[in-house]
């Protein structure tokens, strides 16, 4: 492809992002390094980086997001593998896809209320377990970090599943057959052939899921019951409750940098190792 063509193809996306994303952010970045008199200050950034409270919340948010991403990956991969490889009937496959896709379309606001009904102390799970005599006191699921993770995994699973199924369906089945002809067991075939080939899907899905998890506001806000604070809720609070836009912007930028580092690391680890093996 000629340089001109590449430029032409990229231009619309890059221009719209530069114009309506980068530029607005620069305006805000500008705000975050200004004090009231208009001179430059890093006060807001220092306020964030010097405060162990905010740093520990950031760390907790990263931990929860990574954990949610990892669990989503396990569950998502399983569902993707199951739907593409085990469900043979067209009708069942149709049902499976409907089930996978429709959660995407219900707003997080209302989905969270569904969770309350399911996970609450008086919720479906606790009532069932109590009735069966498995537990004697309700387990606390809602309003804990566990509850937030469950909610995030649920909401983000479709992104992971669809990212992986698109790759999984396109793997040449002869590769897997060839592997078993060479004497590899089904599990080994999966590990040595299928899994490495799906790395691009895993990567795309994980990046999406992690990004959405770390920036999610509505789900954590509703499932935390005010008992757990994450960095996105801090940013929201700074913006919408105490109206300190400068500090809110500073925190958002700091988190953006952290996220880039994590995603970059993830790319580096997965690219260098697995993709190559898959190509071989």
């Amino acid at each position: 492809m000629s340089k001109k063509t590449v430029l032409l193809l990229l231009a619309p996306s890059v221009l719209i992002l530069l114009g309506f994303f980068v530029l607005p952010l620069i305006v805000v970045l500008n705000n975050s390094i200004m004090d009231e008199t208009g001179s430059i200050t890093f006060h807001h950034y220092l306020q964030y980086f010097k405060d162990s409270h905010y740093l520990s919340i950031t760390w907790k948010s990263i931990k929860i997001s990574l954990l949610a991403t990892f669990i989503t990956l396990l569950i998502g991969y399983f569902i993707a593998y199951f739907t593409t490889r085990y469900i043979k009937s067209k009708k069942l496959k149709r049902v499976a896809y409907i089930v996978i896709i429709s959660p995407l379309f219900t707003s997080a606001v209302v989905r969270s209320f569904g969770w309350m009904v399911i996970l609450g102390n008086n919720g479906f799970i606790n009532n069932t377990l109590l009735a069966l005599g498995i537990i004697s006191e309700p387990i606390k699921l809602l309003y804990t970090e566990t509850g937030i993770i469950i909610g995030l995994v649920y909401i983000l699973a479709p992104f992971m599943i669809l990212s992986i199924t698109t790759v999984l369906e396109n793997i040449d089945s002869r590769l897997e057959e060839a592997a078993s002809d060479l004497g590899l067991g089904p599990f080994q075939t999966f590990l040595k052939v299928t899994l490495p080939l799906t790395v691009p899907g895993i990567l795309a899905g994980s990046v999406m899921v992690f990004s959405l998890a770390i920036s999610a506001y509505v789900t954590p806000a509703m499932l935390s019951g005010g008992k757990v604070q994450l960095i996105a809720t801090v940013i929201y609070e700074q913006m919408m409750q105490v109206f300190n836009y400068q500090f809110g912007s500073a925190v958002a930028f700091a988190v953006l940098i952290f996220s880039f580092l994590i995603i970059g690391l993830n790319h580096y680890l997965l690219r260098s190792d697995w993709v190559e093996e898959g190509r071989r």
Binding site: L10, S13, V14, L17, L18, F20, F21, V22, L23, P24, L25, V27, V28, V207, M208, S211, L212, I214, S215, Y217, A232, I235, Y236, M239, M240, Y245, G248, S249, A252, V255, L256, S259, F260, I263
Partner: peptide, 24 residues
């Protein structure tokens, strides 16, 4: 750079983006 540019709207808490765009 282009890849990161295109992915970055995912990473910002959206409330922040909303306010930034309103201002802009």
């Amino acid at each position: 750079f282009v890849m990161n540019l295109i992915s970055s709207p995912l990473l910002l808490p959206q409330i922040f983006l909303g306010l930034a765009l309103l201002q802009f």
